[in-house]
Simulated assay, not measured.
Amino acid sequence: MTPSSGRGLLHLAAAVDQPGAYDAAAYTEPARLAERGGLDFVTLRDGFARPGPDALAVLARVAPETRRIGLVPTVTTTHTEPFHVQAAVATLDWVSRGRAGWRLDVSAGEREARLFGRRPAASAAALWREAGEVADVAGRLWDSTAEDAGARDPATGHRGGRHPVDFTGSTFSVRGPSTVPRPPQGHPVRVVDATEGPARSTAARYADVALVRAAGCAQAAAVREELRSAAARFGRDPHTLRVLASLVVDLAGGEATAEPGWGSLLPDRGHGRRGATRRGAQGPPLYRGGPVDLAELIAAWHGQGAVDGFHLVPAEPHRDLERLVNGTVVLLQHRGLFRTFYPGSTLREHLGLARPASRYAAAGSGS
């Protein structure tokens, strides 16, 4: 069954963060569970101030244990080499056969800066400008090597399909070309948390998916409109930007009511107000309730055109992801609001996004 909503496809993603876990099974099993539910992708957070294994390496390990679900690690653009970052993300796309994404983030703290000793901490605005430059050069590098770049020209004996990038940013320069052949998706999916102002321009210009930590339907709709308008000003088709509301979900109470408070969308049924509640300025808002009411909230926000979908962070990783997939997702599928199978094999196909042509395709270098 395919979704019947006039608002377009509903997209669902989930975090598979496992604090303190280093064993691969701790991440493989939740990714498989999310895949059984047909979710678009899973995310895994990372950062220089966050203890734990490298997110990109973990999801590269998860890739051969899954078949369809997208894999989106956080990779910071601060204190890292853009050439190495894009090569690692491109490699994940190859390893997963076209299911890689990349959640861009920045490291603004002095503590992180001291880990490297190259430069002091910078403002969020400066770091997100740099992140945009990294996103830009990554796309250029992904295009710089064609799929058949290893083939030799029979006349000259030279290998073709490689293009120098010669990019100079505010804090780095890259000549290129990439050492990794063009990824299966052309460009792996770029994800940006666009909640805070400094990140919104980068999201509008370069992201395929923007995450928004919104505590109410109206707030989410306003940010979505702002992002799409900005994308249009950058010359993009705004309909190619997917905006997902990010919520922490605590399903411990079964069908118990959500806490009264922020962003309540569903009506009071005599048991208190159900909906999203404020968790704190630094994290996603919290939904506390049951799988049925969460399905209602998702359907309502999406039905009103406030968002293209949801990125859901289980409050308790094992319990809440299972209740999300086996409860909320099943209810949405029964209502025809969410797919029951993957129509394609790549993350771009899950999101309804076209594979971008190489900027060098016109020169006959392949796409």
Score class of each variant (00 low, 15 high):
V72P: 07
L39F: 05
R339T: 14
P314I: 01
L92R: 07
Q185Y: 02
P267V: 11
W102F: 09
R32I: 03
A49S: 11
Y27A: 00
F234W: 15
W142N: 04
T156Y: 15
P267I: 14
A357K: 00
T257P: 14
R279V: 02
G280T: 03
F83S: 14
G98Q: 03
T91R: 11
G280W: 06
E112D: 10
A113C: 04
Y342D: 05
L104P: 08
R242N: 11
A361Y: 00
D237H: 12
P198D: 09
S229Q: 13
R242F: 08
A194W: 01
G8T: 12
P284N: 14
G336C: 05
L39E: 04
T2C: 09
L324C: 05
L247S: 02
G253P: 00
R339A: 15
L71R: 03
G47W: 00
R67C: 14
A231L: 12
T156R: 11
Q185T: 08
H318Y: 05
A15H: 11
A230D: 12
P19C: 12
A34P: 03
G253R: 14
R7P: 06
V192R: 01
G216M: 04
L321Q: 06
V42T: 11
D153T: 07
V72Q: 09
E296T: 04
F338I: 01
T277Q: 06
R205W: 02
R118W: 06
A25K: 09
A245D: 10
L71Y: 06
L294R: 01
H302A: 15
E110C: 01
V174N: 04
R273V: 12
T43C: 05
D40A: 06
G272S: 08
R319Y: 13
W102Y: 12
V292I: 14
A15K: 08
T171A: 14
P53D: 05
P317H: 06
G117H: 04
A300T: 11
G101I: 09
T145D: 02
R335M: 10
R236E: 14
T179N: 14
V58R: 02
R348M: 06
H158D: 13
D46C: 05
E225I: 09
G101L: 05
G37Q: 09
A231P: 09
L353C: 07
N326S: 11
G169I: 10
S246V: 07
I69T: 10
R200Q: 15
A31K: 06
G289T: 07
G197H: 01
L115F: 13
Y342H: 02
